[in-house]
Design a binder for these strands. Structure first.
Lengths: 342, 342
DNA sequence: GAATCGTCTCAAAGCGCTTTGGATACCTTA
DNA sequence: TAAGGTATCCAAAGCGCTTTGAGACGATTC
């Protein structure tokens, strides 16, 4: 049953039926009711494809997830970010179009989305320090919001970011206050903007405490459990091992903890760990005290907010760029204890 | 630049241009070349919305992720499953349409997808034992593939499942061979089909070894780290605590391990753990030996295969239902050691 | 030279919706 | 009574593509 058939049943024009169903004012309440009832009775469902062609809006938001051939790693926060954003889209009648692409095809994928009119806007995740996607999307003239930001890109654009610098400054400071001096950094990939900023934050706390930054105690890698394990194992094997770790994610932290335990040590006793906690639903850092000391920011909440910002941007394409910087919560946890200088 | 304008530039009809670009045979190679070059030069991109309206195909696959208000838990395997499926879709020119819905609106969401023609087919994940979605999708007459299966649904339908019964039979058997007798089961939610089958497998190994199944040592819960922790802590506090655990996921296993360690015990020494390992990219159970003994099956591979099956089904709607049952790999790991009866 | 066949191209009819630009009838108001 | 409003409704023109059914043309066959 399509609009034409329905309107014939009702002895009305397609126009009137369409308007009645879409809540336009210029239709009599009695007819509107009659139309609604008929639509119900005949189970009329407007064809989305036809509607999007006619309106020029696809009512869908694009998310593009790059997958590198080597690492094959999908960021763990992806799930919860998408869950948050998806709920907001659904509440506004939008769907989400997801595309998994290999690294090299990423820019092309954005072009495809924009030029074919597949989506009305896109979310950009995990920007690098000088991310090419931002200029590219500006050229494509499609609404977008960045989760994170790109330090070396000076264009104005909408973003929502966590104060990563401050977060790692706080994290390192926490360890220093506990009496640690030899502190390691196990960071995410530092081509990523968030990781670069975290490094800056870490270093600022260290230098403020007049502690040198030993390159042997700083590692940048993809955020998986084994990478955390390997990095921490190697550092603990040094002649002057660290007594504490600042770590960029729960996944890495689990690996660090395993390394610590495999050395016969205990996290929170001989070695302390503090990590960034995205508050993932299936790996929440919960309990009293929680297992890991952490700086926490909910990635699901970020997903929701990014989605809302994007829908806003789509509704008013000309409003000035909007930015939000979220602070983290410092969470004390069992993985931290007093250091040798306490 | 649309098709009409392009065809005017070329002094050809829209028909010919369309056919030239879409590789139909009835067009001269010389003109095809001319058309291709012009399309390139003018950066012509066919409008997807118009194309889908004309063809009646949306070239998109639907994934619906239910999110319950209380637990707010997204299954950890989701990321990798979607990553696998997405690559296959992309290779065939399909996109993925994702919808996050609250539990109660799940069936409605499938109806929406089918009746509005939003997608050409859907993937069903995590079926319960008598999942209502299967009959519903059959009624909607839309192609679908189930990842897992529903024991109490007798309709023929396409599915791909892991042999969960056998997997947990093997897992329990492994512990028994190691000399364990008091073995606990920390399972997923047993309304889910995979969890119900795993329980059956666990029980069959236990009864074959003439070991009773103590209800105090069996737990069914959502698969998060804290749930694993809580369940294991309570069991270890019993007057006759278990010496080994069979656990339904890596997330749960991490919680179990934490509980074990918080009791001052060590996994692989006083207590053994074996778990189901979906081979998640950021939490791989890697190393020599890997930290956890496990029964392993790659959920990313499952995503790829489900996607391929669905595209097949869409291409030939009338072929008989197709089913695949995958066996797991038994992986020996550091979390298992000899039991008291070794 | 007529009939037949292939090859290449085209005009036009959809696909199912939204939206523009009236039309019609009925009320008000001066 | 005529002019101007207002409330309802409609015909038709898109949106940009695919696909049907047919025509034009030259080559081949008898």
């Amino acid at each position: 049953m399509n609009l034409k058939q329905l309107s014939e049943q009702l002895n009305l024009s397609q126009t009137t039926v369409s308007r009645a169903l879409n809540g336009y004012p210029e239709v009599n309440e009695a007819t509107r009711k009659r139309v609604a009832e008929a639509a119900q009775r005949y189970r009329y469902r407007p064809n989305i494809r036809a509607r999007t062609l006619a309106t020029g809006k696809s009512m869908s938001i694009g998310h593009i997830i790059p997958l590198s051939r080597q690492s094959e790693l999908v960021n763990m926060v992806f799930t919860d970010f998408v869950a948050g954003a998806g709920l907001v889209y659904a509440a506004h009648g939008f769907t989400m179009t997801l595309k998994i692409v290999e690294d090299a095809e990423e820019l092309e994928a954005y072009s495809h989305f924009a030029e074919h009119g597949v989506v009305d806007g896109v979310i950009v995740q995990a920007p690098s320090c000088d991310d090419r996607r931002i200029a590219h999307l500006r050229d494509l003239d499609i609404p977008f919001v960045v989760h994170g930001r790109a330090s070396n890109v000076s264009l104005p654009y909408d973003w929502l970011d966590v104060n990563n610098r401050r977060a790692f400054d706080q994290a390192a400071r926490h360890l220093i206050e506990l009496g640690h001096r030899r502190i390691a950094l196990i960071n995410g990939n530092e081509r990523m903007d968030f990781a670069a900023r975290r490094r800056v934050g870490f270093l600022s706390a260290m230098s403020e405490a007049e502690l040198g930054a030993d390159p042997l105690l700083m590692r940048s890698c993809d955020m998986s459990e084994p990478n955390g394990y390997t990095a921490a194992s190697q550092m603990l094997d040094l002649s002057e091992p660290p007594t504490a770790f600042v770590v960029a994610s729960i996944a890495l932290a689990l690996g660090v903890k395993r390394a610590v335990e495999d050395m016969g040590l205990r996290a929170g006793c001989q070695v302390s760990i503090i990590c960034f906690d995205d508050d993932i639903s299936y790996l929440p850092n919960a309990g009293a005290p929680p297992p890991f000391a952490a700086v926490r920011s909910s990635v699901r909440a970020a997903g929701k907010r990014c989605a809302a910002m994007l829908l806003d941007r789509i509704a008013s394409p000309n409003r000035p760029a909007q930015q939000e910087l979220w602070e983290v919560d410092l969470v004390r946890g069992a993985s931290c204890g007093p250091g040798p200088f306490a």
